[in-house]
Design a protein around this nucleic acid. Structure first.
Lengths: 219, 219
DNA sequence: ATTAAATTTTAGACATGCCTAAAAATACTA
DNA sequence: TAGTATTTTTAGGCATGTCTAAAATTTAAT
């Protein structure tokens, strides 16, 4: 249907659209995909011809409903494969991204339906990101950043804002994982670091840089 | 490492080498890959430069050890994914080939190791074909064609020689699947058809065309 | 052994997706 | 608002993998 490359462009533009509300610039796409602006111009003209996005020269780009659907489907595939890799094959959450980048381009609607069922219709991937439904609906995240939570509010760790290997391994090391219950015991006004009390009764200190990349659900 | 296309060429040449003992012709490869002889010539020159096969103009082609290893690894991936699709996702054995053709090109040695473990280190795929080991060893099949078995010899159905959707669905329809115990009650000298007694005590008639595409293991 | 048929290779072209360098348009700044 | 800086597009080119048509080679047949 659509090529590996086309799907990657649509996914990148979709990702950029989630943050920015306006149209997406050529350079932003080039940065995200680690390619050159000239290559992006070539590709977006092609995608515009296929009605996957709206493109006006020098004005950036916006996905059409058709293009958004392709992007969301690709995200759905990516996240379901990540669940498979972690839950079934016992990969760490820091190891799954690159493999899922490949698997997300496998073309078979039936495969994804059956995978979804096999995994028990998961709602979130191993990093806490919501998995779009078969119909292309995707839940807006109800999670908040840990650094915005007030002291003594019990929360459950539910996602990460930084998906880098380094950050995920750091969380592993300090013993934070999805599902961990905790609350902020103390907030350091000077550097924004937090003393976190885990439900294991143990307390740990985390920096502001860590706290602002952790998504939690108040309970 | 190697492109999708390169892996497919190597796999095709490997497959053709299993039957023919001699070097493989350009046309044979073109037929199997549904492409043109001119395209094959281009590609085999490229593969020869990479030392994946030996090529002499007008003399056909033969895989080197290096090329054979890439082919066998691809076959291993293909067959492991087929087991996954049938055993875990509950696909029928007639539905898995095309999806496995895509999945076999996913590039991650760790993924395949973990998949192998998850599946319980299967020795054969859903069609009875042996799965090469991690080291690239592949067992020569010990199965024989049902039409070469003598009457009253108990056998277990263990594989198929024809992998077409039509044939596999036919076997489904007449109730033959891998693991079925049976023996030949009667052999029709006129048309080579067989009366097969299943271990369910039920008897069925199968044509010679069917019998010669069923692999069995004598017990 | 010569000719005819089949196979294989070469030559030249095309599509995809990428690049660099230069031109055009837009945005910023004094 | 003029002039500079940045962004974006165009132009031209490259690599991969495909094709058709024509040439070269091998195989088969008389």
């Amino acid at each position: 249907m659509y090529s590996f490359t086309e799907e990657n462009y649509l996914k990148a533009i979709y990702k950029l659209s989630e943050n920015n509300r306006q149209s997406i610039s050529t350079n932003a796409i080039a940065d995200l995909l680690q390619t050159k602006a000239a290559s992006v111009t070539d590709m977006i003209r092609k995608l515009a011809e296929k009605k996957l996005l709206k493109y006006e020269k020098y004005k950036g780009v916006e996905l059409t409903d058709k293009g958004k659907r392709v992007a969301v489907d690709t995200v759905r595939k990516h996240r379901l494969w990540e669940v498979f890799l972690c839950d079934k094959l016992k990969f760490g959450w820091d190891e799954v991204h690159d493999i899922a980048e490949q698997l997300e381009h496998i073309n078979s609607a039936l495969l994804i339906d059956k995978l979804d069922a096999f995994l028990g219709y998961p709602s979130h991937d191993p990093h806490g990101d919501p998995i779009p439904t078969k119909n292309g609906d995707i839940k807006k995240s109800e999670f908040v950043l840990l650094n915005t939570v007030k002291a003594l509010q019990p929360v459950i760790m539910s996602g990460v804002a930084d998906h880098s290997v380094l950050f995920l391994q750091h969380l592993d090391k300090i013993g934070l994982r999805l599902g961990t219950s905790c609350l902020i015991e103390e907030m350091n006004a000077y550097d924004g670091s937090l003393k976190l009390k885990l439900n294991s009764k143990q307390s740990i200190n985390i920096s502001k840089d860590v706290a602002k990349n952790i998504l939690v659900k108040p309970v």
